[in-house]
Amino acid sequence: MKKSIFLCLLVFCSSSLVAQTKMRAAWVATVANTDWPSSQHLTVLQQKKECQELLNLAVQLKLNTIIFQVRPHGDALYKSAFEPWSDRLTGVQGKYPGYDPLQYWIEQCHKRGLKIHAWFNPYRVQHPTVKEPLAKNSLQRKAKSWCIYLKKGYVWLNPASKAVRQYVQTVILDCARRYDIDGIHLDDYFYPYKDFLPASGFPDAKEYSAYLKTKPSKVMDKEMWRRHQVNTLVYSLHKGLERLKPQLEFGISPFGIWKPGFPKGVKGTSSFDSLACDSRRWLREGWVDYLSPQLYWPESAPQQRFSSLLNWWKMQNPLNKKIVPGLASWRTEPKELINQMKRCEYDPKVHGFSHFSLGAIQKNSYLKQQLINYGRDRK
């Protein structure tokens, strides 16, 4: 009897220790002033106060990692020699905000024992919320040939351009080199979602024709060729960061469905086909330290069931890289959200969770209190 009780206690303590060491993260989105700063017209002191309030909430929630968006659309929330200061800070692209936001976030995170990952959007150059005038060193001014104008006011860099890929990597490695961050993070925007595209699709016929003229021994169709462009960037970043700062974690948060039918019964947008993202390969090849698939559906969703997708992703991980599911904290009912968090924390093949987003939790007083209570009860 005593032996059985001892074994139960041992298993419980081991499970609690595993749960404590996993990544408990939240995204902080700056695009369109989603989470921070709340407005383009705040003073430096007001911006810093909002930062502190968000991070104090992260501590209350017992989080340990902040994924902070530093490049929402070809701009910078840090001092960059390559790109203009983000208009999210002042309302004017290129205007110095009076301090270095990323450096401040790093200091405030580390002061609280939080890790901080710098989040980059690699290819988006213009968001509909960005207004003229553009800064002189905006990509739309200094590299017009790289820019592709899409629907709804979006402008994109061409993933098929070698010069673009080298530039994006240079920007990211420069930030990683100069700042005391704990990780680099990319989101799900590689080739754009169909909502942004003209009826004719992404305009890269010229680049694909140029590829065909090289007479490759094994011809890739256009979809495979696009995935190759994305894979090239991901692999290059993986190797570049490994050489520069091997202690940094490199993570990506792809759309949660790799392909419809994987697992059986799943339907929805295909990350593999529509966004040219072979996110399963990144995991299997070990090109990322963690993958945070956006599993933004409830257990009741018949064609995107949370547990079905999570179990499938667990099976795609032969190298035991970190799987850190993204949770739809802005729309999931609190009880279900907490159940998803528990599953991620106590499943030995899952390595934590990430809330989208910290600002969404802060704005929902009921959800915030429920998650604070859950964090308080955690061992």
Rank of each mutant, 00 (worst) to 15 (best):
Y78P: 00
S279Q: 12
G240Q: 02
R280T: 14
Q362R: 15
F272D: 03
N121L: 12
S271R: 03
L10E: 12
R124G: 07
I106D: 08
N317I: 01
P133H: 01
L63N: 03
E132S: 13
V288Q: 04
T232M: 10
Y189R: 10
P348L: 06
D273G: 05
P325K: 08
L89P: 04
Q247S: 14
C51F: 10
A19V: 01
K79D: 14
M315F: 00
V164W: 04
V324A: 04
C8Y: 11
E223A: 13
S357W: 00
V11T: 11
L358Q: 02
E53W: 03
V59T: 14
G201P: 03
D35V: 11
N158S: 13
N231F: 05
T332E: 08
W119P: 03
L10A: 14
C175G: 06
E249W: 10
A118N: 05
S300Y: 00
P122S: 12
Q169M: 11
P334C: 03
S4N: 11
K363Q: 14
L212A: 05
A160W: 02
N137I: 12
K111I: 05
N364H: 07
F202C: 06
H228A: 13
K335P: 00
V266F: 07
K3E: 15
Q362S: 14
V130Q: 15
T332Q: 10
L241R: 06
Y290W: 07
L327P: 01
P159S: 08
T129P: 01
S217K: 14
L244G: 02
N231V: 02
Y374A: 09
V164K: 06
S217A: 12
L42V: 01
A276T: 02
P246L: 08
T129R: 04
F12V: 15
Q126P: 00
S145R: 11
S86D: 07
N364C: 01
S217Q: 12
S14C: 13
Q47C: 10
G251R: 04
L17A: 13
Y193K: 09
Q126S: 08
A301G: 02
T65N: 13
V266E: 00
L42D: 00
S200T: 15
G91H: 07
N158T: 05
G251I: 06
F306V: 03
K194H: 11
V164S: 09
A26E: 00
E223H: 12
F120I: 08
L61F: 11
A176H: 04
T129G: 02
